[in-house]
């Protein structure tokens, strides 16, 4: 098994409050990690650190032997930051689709811009670029088919249901082929009857190539889909293990508490 992601001693504070405290874990290729924990535990912050939307205070992140972040090396310039971000994809709780673009263009916008940048860097011809655009377009169609939205290609985000919007957001992340795809509570903003379609799409992505990190409150889903569970509380990884270990034999009081609270909610 090859290690795709290595997170070592990740730390992050906001003002005086330490939100992540020495978070370390590893992921192998094709592995699905579910992160669970109560509100304010630092789950979103962890994903945002991986995607470099917030810069960690300490620690190291490595993807495929490429050092994404190392506190010792100091600040990255914007350009490097951008290429390093592309190792990760992120699907937001609130979808964050671009309202002025239709579904198809939501998918192709960034991919085309990147293709153009690459083309001019390599001094490619405009023919090459056109070919690349055509490739991106046909891939966008394929991905939309995969998330079941091919017929909505020309629709604008405001014309879609929440579940459909989130599936577009997933497709938009997929088209850039990130090494690791992150989901931050992808169904929390959805009506209960729409969560199913999104979770099915995510489950359908599981393959030996797709490494995923899913922050979720859907315990059933986490248990079924993930190969590894991390329970995070107050910025510390309290427990980590297979679904069986974590769900059937919770060791820490905090996790037991968390589970009994989740049951109460149901």
């Amino acid at each position: 098994m090859e290690t795709v992601l290595k997170v070592e001693n990740l730390c992050k504070s906001f003002d005086k409050e330490q939100v992540l405290k020495n978070v370390s874990f590893e992921l192998e290729k094709g592995e699905v990690l579910a992160i669970i924990g109560s509100s304010g535990g630092g789950k979103t912050t962890l994903l945002r650190c991986l995607n470099q939307l917030v810069i960690p205070d300490g620690g190291k992140i490595t993807v495929n032997d490429d050092v994404i972040f190392d506190a010792e090396l100091g600040k990255e310039n914007e350009k490097n930051l951008r290429t390093k971000r592309l190792h990760f994809g992120l699907v937001f709780q609130q979808f964050n689709l671009f309202p002025q673009y239709n579904v198809f263009n939501n998918l192709t916008l960034a991919a085309r811009l990147l293709a153009k940048e690459k083309n001019s860097k390599n001094k490619g011809s405009s023919e090459d670029l056109k070919k690349e655009y055509a490739r991106i377009d046909s891939e966008a169609e394929k991905i939309l088919e995969r998330v079941g939205l091919k017929e909505k290609m020309k629709a604008y985000p405001c014309e879609l249901s929440g579940g459909q919007q989130q599936r577009v957001a997933i497709a938009r992340a997929l088209i850039l082929h990130p090494d690791i795809l992150c989901f931050d509570e992808p169904t929390s903003a959805l009506d209960p009857e729409l969560t199913g379609e999104v979770l099915r799409v995510i489950e359908g992505l599981k393959s030996k190539d797709n490494t995923m990190i899913i922050v979720t409150h859907e315990m059933e889903f986490a248990r079924r889909v993930a190969g590894k569970i991390i329970f995070i509380a107050d910025g510390i990884i309290e427990e980590m293990g297979t679904p069986e270990e974590v769900f059937e034999n919770p060791k820490s009081e905090k996790l037991k508490n968390f589970f009994s609270k989740s049951v109460e909610k149901l």
Binding site: E78, F98, L109, L113
Partner: peptide, 29 residues
């Protein structure tokens, strides 16, 4: 919303691209 900037960032767009391709049209509207 900040989410629009962040969506652009995680898709590898530059600050200029984000402003002119995503934000500006929405601001104008």
């Amino acid at each position: 919303s900040q989410g629009q900037y962040e969506a652009g960032q995680v898709l590898g767009m530059t600050k200029t691209q984000i402003f002119f391709r995503i934000i500006l049209a929405q601001v104008i509207k």
